[in-house]
Amino acid sequence: MARTEQQSNDRFQGRWFWRYASPAAFYPVAGRIEKLSWALAAILAIVGLYIGFFRAPTDAQQGEVYRVIYIHVPAAWMAMIIYLAMAFWAATGLVLGTRLSFMMSHALAPTGAIMAVIALWTGALWGRPTWGTYWVWDARLTSTLILFFLYVGYIALAAAFDDKKKGDRASALIALVGAVNVPIIYFSVNWWNTLHQGSSVRPGSSSMASIMLTAMLIMTFAFWAYCVAAAMHRLRTQIIEREAETKWVKELVK
């Protein structure tokens, strides 16, 4: 049984978060978050890249090519974190019946998929000089590939329904099923890899010099900010699309 939003609003009336569960109320808030995040992303990226390229020294083992990790590691982290966030909002939407939660899930998915692609691509380019091959069926690489498939499934499913409400709940369910399975898949791939993979060196960061670590952390925050900004932008577009019939959206467009 799906509660309509009106009912849930009545039930939880008076709690602050319900005020912002309405798309109309959250639209301007999302706008402010978006602007702030774009600015943060730009500033942090400039600082992070400056430290990473002009302050951090060459790595003793890998040479200059290690500088790929400033984008590779944050992208891989974001791909995972965004999936969790997506599943969280999907669950919230299914339990509370709030439309905004579903929109949040939809807004996050494409950015998450892009992050997974970047992590795979940069990982391959980093792997070629470091391990001697663009691709190994390493546990981490393989799990990231599967994560990408999960994103693709979610996005395709959400688009497969003409009825938006149905698409919302169907894709939310598959996001949850995926989230439950992610640890199992990760465990299986790890197990499989340790048993069958031929001689190769596994990736793993050594004790990293602090200036390299600083650059990487700053870049990680830059990625965070970028992803938040992109998701907020997409969220606002969805609100406009879905509330196109309402008075406030019509007033928005001059």
Partner: peptide, 13 residues
């Protein structure tokens, strides 16, 4: 049957 190595001075498996 299989040998895995690690290159880093400070890091071992």
């Amino acid at each position: 049957k299989e040998v895995l190595a690690k290159h880093d001075e400070n890091y071992m498996p």
